[in-house]
Simulated assay, not measured.
Amino acid sequence: MDQTHTRAMEALQPFIHLANSNSATSPKFVANLITNATSSPNTYVFAELLEIQMVQALRSTDTPAEYQGYLTLLEIFSWGTWQDYQATPNLPPLNEKQTLKLRLLSLLSLSAAIKPLTYQMLMDALSITAPSELESLVTTAIYSSLITARLSPATSPPTVNVTSVAPLRDVKPQSLTTMISILTQWETRCGDVISDIEAEIAKIRTNSAKRRAKEHAQMALFEKTLSNWGPEGSESRLAGPKNPGWHGGMRGGAGGFVGNKREFSSDDFDDGYWDNGTENAYDTLVAGSRMDIDEGAGSSRMGPAGAGARHAKRFLGKKY
């Protein structure tokens, strides 16, 4: 419980004790009790005093007219405002302490309901004519821990910036139905939000489970495929069948050899071609292909040097 509210409850206890222990039940005694309770500087809540049977007895038609207004006055101090007091006829007059107390309580209600609070609006609501008087009232409320506020007289318009209000006003019984309705609507909205959150959580969990199942199926398929690539069949699968016309150096085709000439080896030519061929086979081959192979500068096919070169080339690839 707020400390300010606790102090206000403690300040009211002597008056409650006096109302319960005193055998006098006359309307005059109850009226004096209400006047003293509302004039006390530290009393700001009065609901417990209102619930006492002796106080409620003032509502009886047998109560003298001069005391009937004290119960209404106590109700205004509990949850009403200065404007309620001004608008209600046949109420007892207020002394100076009661006037200050009711204005302070009205300031609490206005601060909780209206923002921003301008000087002019507060002066009209509290029947104050001078800005200095309003500033004195607000300062008293601040030092009494009723509100946390800052005065801004230089702004246009001048305002009172309230940041917090002490929970010192009693709840009007007629407003309980409205409060219950508001709280019920708030509870319903909270339930709808919780339901939406739970549905979203369930959706996320379902999608996550589907995703994990899909990943598991893909991993199982991958492992099954990988297991089929055993040691026995891996070479054949990777290499594949050799094509007789493959460029790796196999014999075949109309030319007698297929592949890159730079990958030749001496074994590929060990077929007696150079030994059993005609004397002019090399010349015929060269003349037919129009290629000069390994001829140095100044060499000639017809001269002795050229004949020697041809002779050397005839033994190319020959194994000894």
Score class of each variant (00 low, 15 high):
1 M>Y: 14
1 M>H: 11
2 D>T: 03
15 F>R: 02
15 F>E: 01
16 I>H: 05
24 A>M: 06
25 T>Q: 10
29 F>V: 02
35 T>R: 10
35 T>N: 00
36 N>K: 08
40 S>P: 02
42 N>A: 08
46 F>C: 00
50 L>D: 01
51 E>R: 15
51 E>A: 13
55 V>W: 01
67 Y>E: 08
72 T>A: 09
76 I>Q: 03
76 I>V: 11
80 G>A: 07
83 Q>C: 04
91 L>S: 11
94 L>E: 12
98 Q>V: 00
101 K>P: 00
115 K>A: 11
123 M>I: 08
124 D>M: 08
138 V>W: 07
139 T>Y: 02
139 T>Q: 11
144 S>E: 06
146 L>G: 01
147 I>L: 10
147 I>F: 05
150 R>C: 13
152 S>V: 04
158 P>N: 06
160 V>Q: 06
161 N>S: 05
164 S>L: 11
165 V>H: 11
168 L>T: 04
176 L>S: 05
179 M>Y: 02
183 L>V: 12
184 T>W: 00
192 D>H: 12
193 V>I: 05
201 I>Y: 15
202 A>R: 14
205 R>Q: 14
207 N>A: 15
217 A>G: 11
219 M>H: 12
219 M>W: 15
223 E>M: 08
229 W>R: 14
229 W>M: 08
229 W>I: 10
230 G>Y: 11
232 E>W: 07
233 G>E: 11
235 E>S: 13
245 G>P: 00
251 R>D: 07
259 G>Y: 14
272 G>H: 07
279 E>H: 08
280 N>C: 03
280 N>F: 04
284 T>G: 04
285 L>E: 10
287 A>N: 15
289 S>L: 14
291 M>R: 06
298 G>E: 05
299 S>L: 02
299 S>P: 01
303 G>E: 09
304 P>M: 10
308 G>K: 15
310 R>L: 08
314 R>F: 08
315 F>E: 11
316 L>E: 13
319 K>L: 05
